[in-house]
Amino acid sequence: MTAPQEVSVGEDDRVRLAPGVMLRQDRVRNHWQLLGPERVLVLDDIALEVVRATTGQPVTVREAIDALAAQFDAPRAEIAADVREVLADMIAKGFLTR
């Protein structure tokens, strides 16, 4: 399922897992995944950190980006671009909601 990214995410937005979506560690396949109705999304390291930072506690996207930039000691602009891209894709696919 490749969704064209027509969804755009602003830094004031807050996101959360959509109803029926859960974050799960798959010990047999050795990765993390988002599970939803009839769907599995395998998370790479970046996507996992984004999901944790944005949905783990009630924060704005801006606050999550700040935290990730500090955590990974990386340029904020780079992190912001990654985060917004990952979030837009997950919203378009119905795993996250605003």
Partner: peptide
């Protein structure tokens, strides 16, 4: 479909 993106997953 375009209008439903991000609102309703269509299978």
């Amino acid at each position: 479909l375009p209008e439903l993106k991000g609102r309703l997953v269509v299978d």
